[in-house]
Amino acid sequence: MSGTENPNPYGRPAGQSGPQWPDAAAQAPYGQAPDASAQAPYGAPPQGWGAPQQWGGQPGWPAAAPVPARRPGPINAAFWLIVSAGVVFLASTVLSALVATSDAGRRELEAAMTKVWGDYGMTPEQIREYQDMLPQMMPVMAGVMVAVGVLALLVYLLIASKIRGGSRAARTVGTVLAVLSVLMVLAPLASGQFSPLDLLWCLLGVAGIATAYRKEATEFMRLRAWERAARR
């Protein structure tokens, strides 16, 4: 063997055992960059493919689709309690309108208004004029009462459906309305006027909002907020 012959044709240093593969960059033709994909480790994307997405915390896989949150029992219970409160409120206003338009209701309202007008210092002639106007005003007042009941029912339905969908903002609005409903019921009770229907719709609404604050309902709303943020 001549002295110019390479004693180590595979590029292995003298005295080192074991095979050593040739360098890919050294084997590439002149003027051609080595293939980056050949140098990429197994399981990792080649260079130039962009930043890897995440799948379960592992790079190199597509993004995982969020699993829809399962609606718990307290959310469904809160929905039906709030809807029931709105229905009872509408029934209470319709019943009050029917009572107000009846003969007994008209006489009761006339007596109450006569006392109020007298307290304001009106003369008997002025009171008599207002009493003559009451029969014409009663249908209008009854229609306004029913319209308020229908509007309140729509608000209850909206809040209940939003809470069922996992909206924390709707739960906050429902909390404010529940506090106002308690004040609306306590004011007549303080004056000696008690209505079982008014007390019932108030208790149903408060119970529905309180149920929406249970741990399972709060966790469901938190997961739904994450789902909405992931879709943006």
Rank of each mutant, 00 (worst) to 15 (best):
A38P: 01
S37K: 00
A65R: 02
G50F: 00
D119W: 08
R164F: 06
E5P: 01
M137T: 12
W55C: 13
M184P: 08
I127F: 03
I159W: 04
P13C: 07
M1R: 03
S17D: 14
K115Y: 07
M221L: 08
S191H: 11
M137D: 12
A230W: 01
A25K: 04
A178M: 05
E129D: 14
G143W: 03
L134K: 02
A147V: 05
G31W: 00
K115T: 15
G118P: 03
V155C: 10
R171T: 14
A160H: 02
G57M: 00
A190V: 11
Y30C: 09
G86E: 03
W61F: 13
I75E: 10
Q53Y: 09
S2I: 05
A178K: 00
P13F: 08
P7Y: 00
P66Q: 10
P68H: 02
A212T: 09
D119M: 11
Q193P: 00
A97F: 03
E219Q: 14
A77Q: 06
A85N: 11
V87G: 08
S161E: 12
P29G: 06
M122P: 04
V67A: 14
A100R: 05
G43C: 09
V144M: 12
W80G: 15
T123A: 13
Q58P: 06
E108H: 13
E227D: 14
T175S: 15
W201G: 05
L81V: 11
L177D: 07
V176E: 02
A91K: 00
L109N: 05
I82K: 01
E5N: 11
A225D: 15
A170M: 02
Q39L: 11
Q126K: 02
G18M: 02
G18D: 06
C202V: 04
A207W: 02
A63S: 10
D119K: 05
V87N: 02
N8V: 02
R106H: 04
G31A: 07
T211R: 04
L98M: 12
T218D: 12
A40L: 03
P7H: 05
T4Q: 05
L154Y: 08
E219C: 06
A24Q: 08
S167A: 11
P139V: 09
R164Y: 06
L134F: 09
G166L: 02
Q53N: 09
Y156D: 13
G192M: 08
V87T: 08
Q20G: 12
V182T: 08
Y130H: 06
A178L: 01
L158C: 12
P13N: 10
L183M: 13
A38D: 14
D23K: 01
V206Y: 01
V94I: 15
P9N: 11
V176Y: 03
A152W: 01
M133L: 09
E219P: 06
R214G: 15
T123C: 07
K162T: 11
A24E: 10
G73S: 12
A26L: 01
